[in-house]
Amino acid sequence: MPDQNGPFFEDVDLGDEIGPIELVATDDNVVNFCELWGNPMPNRFTSQEIAEKSGLFGPIVPGVMSMAIMSQALTDWAGPESLKDLDLVFRQPVPHNKPLLVSATITDTREEDGKNLIECDVLMMGEAGERYVGGTAIIALPSNRGQ
């Protein structure tokens, strides 16, 4: 792995926690995301009126974007090529313009097919403890053996 700035496999242990990393999806971020995604606007992700008609409190962050945000938090920590598997369940609508706290807890470390893998439970929460998105991630880390 080039230019290693993240952790080595030997640096982490079962039960270690990553984060929480605080991120915010602004109205502008969501509009930009929907434009790129090709989802015609206005929609329940960008319009208060349409969101309310769908029974929501207001416009929400698309699940695809929540995943991108959680992925970003993990690759910020472990490195851009590290994330091998991210498996998420969207539990509650995610609001715009509010702090989103992304954290992970390491639940397994193993060597598999020559790779040093860690498995984590991952979570995106709100400030009041709302559990918006949960799931698991598998991350490959470099080893510092022999250095």
């Binding site: 699940g63 498996d87 369940v89």
Partner: peptide, 10 residues
């Protein structure tokens, strides 16, 4: 019908 989950494997 709603989007319940998503998985990406690189």
């Amino acid at each position: 019908r709603f989007h319940a989950g998503q998985r990406v494997q690189s």
